[in-house]
Design a protein around this nucleic acid. Structure first.
Lengths: 339, 339
DNA sequence: CTTTCCAGTTCACTGGTTACA
DNA sequence: TTGTAACCAGTGAACTGGAAA
């Protein structure tokens, strides 16, 4: 059924020149007579010749390919980050090779990196958020892989390059805002506590309360799993245990949606009785009822910065920082009706 | 900085055998003495040898790689579909090579297919929804590419393989349900009319009204662009022009969210005054206020079926149907408060 | 007369696998 | 059971013969 692919030798034969000359035409090398170039180019176009990346990469030792490891593409954050990576990588002339993890725990990164090495990727973007100990292997074991890796959403580690949003600052901004709105008893509905992002947002909650000389009560923290359903359950639990809570910072917009539903079910008006601030600024959040105040994180930019950082490393443009290179994207408060 | 990769020859040299013997061990060929196999395997593990996919693919003529063209990854649908594809492809042992289009119009598919051919992909999944004439090139020009392509969300075309949700039936189900709820003047807030999916859903709206002997008034159709903002604007326009509308089928959940907001702003109670049915069943829709009745589409399955179809073609397991092969995924009505 | 440039060729090599010995 | 040689689709380096500087 399928024809064999057109090769450089066939083109060369038809043009009556050597393969090397065709190669020069393809690569825009100058040492080809104009007349010859035109003749060969015509044949290339007519025959639909496409040089083989495989052969070229094999010889050159670099493939212009980036491996990307993802997890949780059902969630808004990870899928947007992947989109940002693919977009920027294509833009920079890289081909992306995505791998999906079905569980966060990474028993043997060796296997995954090994697959990428088989595919001759030039570098890797590890877009699996730090959860529990799932990045402990990176602690000291990355140099063994002998291939540059950029991590997305990992706490700073010596010698490693990471890109992430400043979750702690985002948390502070959210709670600062609630305090500015006159709230004094501010709860936290957080994503799974295993997630580093969740911990950082909780830290922001703490710091803001401290800065405003408000008491910190860990009983005001309820844990969800980032889903709207868990947000609903968490808000129910929180308001049942602490009926006088007047403000809540929720770890993402989906949970905030569920939380608002629960608050309403318990007869609370938002924002009058309870003010709510989310995190993500997903496009829908501007249309929730009430519209959701939230912390915007630019995930497209996280993705493109990760590609940029990898690109810089691959081109040898940067001296790796022994402390670990860190690109931090600033969050932004978007005020709407829910506060 | 980076070492050269470990090659089969190095392993062979260290083991004192020929490269061929190492190759046999790697590929599980039987004709190797057990003792030799163990010795070589030990060296492979210790040195961290990974056979080169490039070299192997070059020789074998197939790469176990699938090219995927995507568009609109910012939307819920396309990003979930891509996730489904990557997941299933990895599962089946394929590597995915994603390409993102920044505009729906495909001026020269030749360029995109050409890039994939350079990368030696075995097949292509064209996951760009049919919009305007952006798939007209497929009409007769696919065989020229001499590579199997599976299309996601394209109307049936002779000789081509496609996977899509039955949008027309979904539309019928939505409107049937509204009628069953006693609604008689049912509007349609649709996605961009250019989109084939939108046309099909509109067709479902028409068929259902016809089946129930209700009048069809094209003035009850308002077009949006799938965003919540456009849904809000559309509902405002619809209720202003036709204050007696008592049910609305909305082309996706995001627009439905905006539409509900607009209806509320105009003093309508939902579902009492206006019942609303969406399309997608995104996870958040179960937590909208009110919770949203919607048509569920299993996009994971669309992705995995596309991979499966391509896999079947690549293995020569299927005779292509001259009428075009069509895999249709059935939608499902999910009833909630908004109706 | 030597040197440089030009247009193009030849050869070896990338990392494996298949066929055959 | 193992080795040898050819091959996949390209590219870098060295080289050729003649013209121009």
């Amino acid at each position: 059924m399928r024809n064999r692919r057109v090769t450089i030798v066939e083109i060369a034969r038809e043009a009556g020149v050597s393969a090397q000359t065709v190669s020069r035409v393809v690569n825009g090398n100058v040492n080809v007579a104009e007349e010859t170039r035109l003749r060969i180019q015509e044949i290339i176009d007519r025959r639909g010749y496409h040089p083989s990346r495989l052969a070229r990469s094999l010889l050159r030792g670099s493939s212009n390919t980036i491996g990307v490891v993802s997890f949780g593409l059902g969630l808004y954050g990870p899928s947007q980050t992947l989109a940002g990576i693919v977009h920027e990588a294509n833009h920079q002339g890289y081909t992306v090779l995505p791998q999906m993890l079905t569980e966060a725990e990474t028993r043997n990164p060796q296997r995954i990196v090994g697959q990428f090495i088989e595919s001759h990727v030039d570098g890797i973007i590890w877009a699996v958020p730090e959860i529990g100990g799932n990045l402990d292997w990176a602690e000291d074991g990355v140099s063994e892989f002998d291939i540059p890796i950029v991590f997305i959403t990992m706490r700073r580690r010596p010698g490693l390059t990471g890109v992430h949003v400043d979750n702690c600052r985002g948390g502070r901004m959210a709670v600062d805002h609630l305090v500015a709105r006159g709230r004094r008893k501010i709860g936290l509905i957080n994503g799974s506590h295993d997630w580093w992002e969740a911990k950082e947002r909780a830290q922001g909650w703490r710091e803001s309360l401290t800065n405003h000389a408000l008491p910190i009560d860990d009983n005001l923290i309820v844990e969800g799993d980032w889903s709207a359903a868990s947000g609903e359950a968490a808000m129910t639990a929180l308001l049942t245990r602490h009926p006088d809570v007047d403000g809540v910072f929720v770890g993402n917009d989906s949970m905030a949606l569920g939380a608002i539903k629960a608050a309403r079910a318990l007869g609370r008006r938002i924002p009058n009785d309870v003010a709510v601030v989310g995190f993500d600024n997903m496009p829908e959040s501007a249309f929730f009822h009430p519209t959701l105040t939230t912390i915007h994180q630019d995930l497209d930019r996280v993705g493109s910065q990760a590609v940029g950082a990898l690109h810089a490393i691959l081109n040898g443009a940067v001296e790796p920082n022994p402390d670990g290179d860190e690109i931090v994207i600033g969050p932004r408060l978007v005020v709407r009706e829910s506060s």
